[in-house]
């Protein structure tokens, strides 16, 4: 265990259950304390779970193309709830259609996410980045 707690889940009305299980498993093996909220998780649930568990980061998954709509306002709500500056990560099929990822990434970084990932990202990539960001050596 590396002593870091991650709250993760699939946001909004999205019911894609497999990817989050894989992520939760991979991050667990990598030494993180994973609080997996499962599917159909609201912004409020991410925040409440992060408060009670004193999470070090929030990891959001979205596969059904409505990620932009579901994620908007999460940073502001975290600020309100006292989770000021908590690192937030997002990945999956974040938008519908053929927008290039640079544009999508920019949208999510502007929304307050620390990093955003395109489809096909391996768990290892996320583990590497988050470990670095949280100062795990």
């Amino acid at each position: 265990m590396n002593g870091k707690t991650l709250v993760m889940g699939v946001i909004g009305a999205d019911v894609h259950a497999v990817g989050i299980k894989i992520l939760s498993h991979a991050f667990g093996l990598a030494g993180f304390n994973v609080i997996n909220l499962g599917v159909m998780v609201s912004q409020e649930e991410f925040i409440e779970a992060a408060i009670e568990t004193a999470a070090d980061a929030i990891v959001v998954s979205s596969l059904y193309g409505h990620g932009e709509m579901d994620c908007r306002g999460l940073r502001e709500k975290c600020d309100e709830a006292g989770l000021t500056g908590i690192p937030m990560y997002v990945g999956g099929n974040l938008v519908v259609g053929k927008r290039n990822f640079e544009e999508v990434e920019k949208t999510f970084l502007e929304m307050g996410f620390t990093r955003a990932y395109p489809p096909g990202t391996t768990p290892e990539k996320g583990i590497e980045d988050i470990s670095k960001d949280l100062g795990i050596t």
């Binding site: 707690t5 304390n33 408060i51 009670e52 568990t53 004193a54």
Partner: peptide, 10 residues
């Protein structure tokens, strides 16, 4: 009460 085990202590 308050906090899960290993969670918020403050």
């Amino acid at each position: 009460s308050g906090g899960t085990d290993g969670g918020n202590k403050e």
